[in-house]
Amino acid sequence: MPTIVLSGATGFLGAHLMARMLSAGVAVLALTRGTPAFAGRRLVRALHFAGLPAAGHFLQTGQLRVVPADLHRQQLGAEPPVFQQLADEADEIWHSAACTDLQAPWEVVSQVNVDGTRRMLHLAAAGRRRPRFVHISTAFVAGGRPTGMIGADALDASHGFLTPYEESKYHAEQLVRAWAAEGRRALVLRPSTLLSDRPPGLRGPRHPHAALRLKLNRLAAHGPHALAQRFGLAPDAEGNVQIRLPGRPDSLINLTPVEYAADAMIRLARADSAPGTTTHHVVHPADTPLAHWLGAMAANAPWVRTRIVGHLPDPTSLETFVASLLPGSDRYSYHRRHYERTALDLAEQRDGAAAPPALDATYLKAALSSPARPTTPLHSGI
């Protein structure tokens, strides 16, 4: 039975990767923080979320093992003999743990996304089996490039970055490439924005836009008149609140169901990797119009009317507030770029697998919906 060391197993994507690995008969050593009992409960919840309800037996049989680890500490916080034993057990090391908070400063995201990657590479380098390192990056290492086809091997900082998260993942990929250049094997997988239309659990993994969803739904719960009072606006004659956002009306964003992304990653990983770094995009074949995405965001507030304008010289206080919830929105909304997915297309043809259909309004609304919350006093810290 092959053994995979997996970081980020309780995360939104990591839970789905772990479920597929276990279902395929792979032994998974899940790097987690907290006591083994607490971590075990979190792993079971994550597997339930990923569609593997009878998850406890994987812990009971030892196919899934809890390994205490801390990405903020040297040797993952383990004593040298324990660290070496972990490294020697690994046939592959998958690094899925990441700070995906788009509003977090560089000092926060770099601790996990850059320094944590360096420590995981140290673990892989120490293993006697010379494990392949599978690094979960992001399609957004393309940074601020607004148009064109992004090649699978492209790693270019010349367009700058829209968030510290993007920049941190760029530097992490540089570390992986330098590590693999010494005759080792690395596979870099770059997903786009991941979503799920399954209802979120109270304590289960959340997708990267969960915080945004919660803030928008809380905002919507107050209704148009409360917004008008808080932001000094007046609803129009039909009782609607107008919100303009800067961008191009034909802008596109790539959104991918997390279930499909996890399947695609496992499919791509089946191919052996030559020495060096192999990089693949894991993206939806059909980009989503930004206007559809914005419409889904406003689905719980039918009295909101969003409009994309090429230039916004004098934003209202509400427009400024909404923009603050969407880091980089003043530049993401001008994007019409695409991502090369040649390897994924070939892998799906090989396996007879179908790519998902374009995401429609029903899917997008479900992905961004959440239960209504009791109305609380409206303030700028929503």
Score class of each variant (00 low, 15 high):
267 R>N: 06
113 N>G: 02
237 A>P: 00
174 Q>V: 12
337 R>M: 11
188 V>I: 14
233 L>T: 10
285 P>W: 03
34 G>Y: 04
182 E>L: 07
327 P>N: 15
14 G>F: 00
155 L>G: 01
379 H>N: 15
281 H>R: 03
49 F>L: 00
284 H>F: 08
309 V>H: 03
294 L>R: 10
281 H>Q: 05
298 A>G: 13
8 G>A: 08
272 D>C: 04
265 M>E: 15
367 A>M: 09
124 A>T: 01
270 R>T: 07
373 R>T: 09
308 I>E: 09
324 S>I: 02
205 P>V: 03
374 P>D: 10
219 L>C: 03
226 A>I: 07
275 P>Y: 15
174 Q>H: 12
140 F>G: 04
137 S>I: 14
92 E>H: 14
130 R>F: 14
333 S>F: 12
130 R>E: 15
7 S>L: 02
324 S>C: 00
323 A>E: 13
336 R>L: 12
305 R>E: 14
357 P>Y: 00
329 S>E: 05
264 A>V: 04
199 P>W: 11
230 R>I: 00
369 S>G: 07
170 Y>H: 11
175 L>R: 00
200 P>H: 10
299 A>N: 01
255 L>E: 05
248 R>D: 02
205 P>A: 02
299 A>W: 03
260 Y>Q: 13
243 I>M: 09
22 L>D: 03
21 M>S: 13
24 A>F: 10
160 G>N: 14
108 V>H: 12
91 D>Q: 04
371 P>F: 03
373 R>P: 08
281 H>W: 05
165 Y>M: 00
374 P>C: 01
133 F>E: 01
32 T>A: 15
72 H>R: 09
188 V>C: 08
272 D>L: 03
350 R>T: 12
226 A>L: 06
298 A>V: 11
340 E>Q: 15
168 S>L: 02
125 A>C: 02
202 L>W: 10
346 L>T: 06
323 A>G: 07
232 G>P: 12
264 A>N: 00
132 R>Q: 10
28 V>H: 06
355 A>V: 04
54 A>F: 11
43 L>M: 07
5 V>K: 01
82 V>D: 15
297 M>E: 14
256 T>E: 07
306 T>D: 03
30 A>G: 09
338 H>Q: 00
168 S>Y: 04
199 P>D: 11
37 A>E: 15
235 P>D: 13
277 T>H: 11
201 G>Q: 13
245 L>H: 08
352 G>V: 14
367 A>F: 08
260 Y>D: 14
107 E>W: 07
202 L>P: 10
82 V>T: 14
156 D>R: 10
30 A>C: 13
240 N>C: 14
12 F>A: 01
170 Y>L: 04
278 T>W: 05
7 S>D: 11
238 E>P: 02
297 M>Y: 14
240 N>F: 10
119 R>L: 12
35 T>S: 15
313 P>R: 06
215 K>W: 05
228 A>S: 03
53 P>C: 12
293 W>E: 02
217 N>G: 09
46 A>Q: 13
223 G>W: 06
218 R>C: 07
105 P>L: 12
35 T>V: 00
117 T>K: 10
167 E>D: 10
316 T>Q: 05
138 T>V: 11
340 E>P: 04
349 Q>F: 09
8 G>K: 04
27 A>C: 13
235 P>G: 13
364 L>K: 01
81 P>M: 03
2 P>N: 00
232 G>L: 12
